[in-house]
């Protein structure tokens, strides 16, 4: 993931900040509890393609 691109990306729903999770290669929106995948280096910023975070995952973010 390009660093400059990472700096300007926000959640498409709430426009809040995203956290890049290197291990799973996902962009996390805490507020909407969504994980947006990065496929072939392309961030997939669609609500329909995002994974809903589990309660455990949300807790672990705090």
């Amino acid at each position: 993931m390009d660093k400059r691109l990472l700096e300007i990306l926000v959640c498409p729903l709430c426009k809040g900040p995203l956290h890049y999770q290197r291990e799973q290669n996902e962009l996390i929106c805490k507020a909407d509890r969504l994980a947006f995948p990065i496929r072939d280096d392309i961030p997939v910023m669609l609500e329909d393609s995002a994974r809903i975070l589990t309660d455990e995952e949300v807790k672990a973010l705090h």
């Binding site: 400059r4 691109l5 300007i8 990306l9 926000v10 498409p12 426009k15 961030p43 910023m45």
Partner: peptide, 15 residues
């Protein structure tokens, strides 16, 4: 050039 998958009506970029 940086590519992003997204919807025109819900842009994933900062103001």
């Amino acid at each position: 050039i940086h590519t992003v998958l997204g919807d025109a009506a819900a842009l994933p970029f900062e103001d």
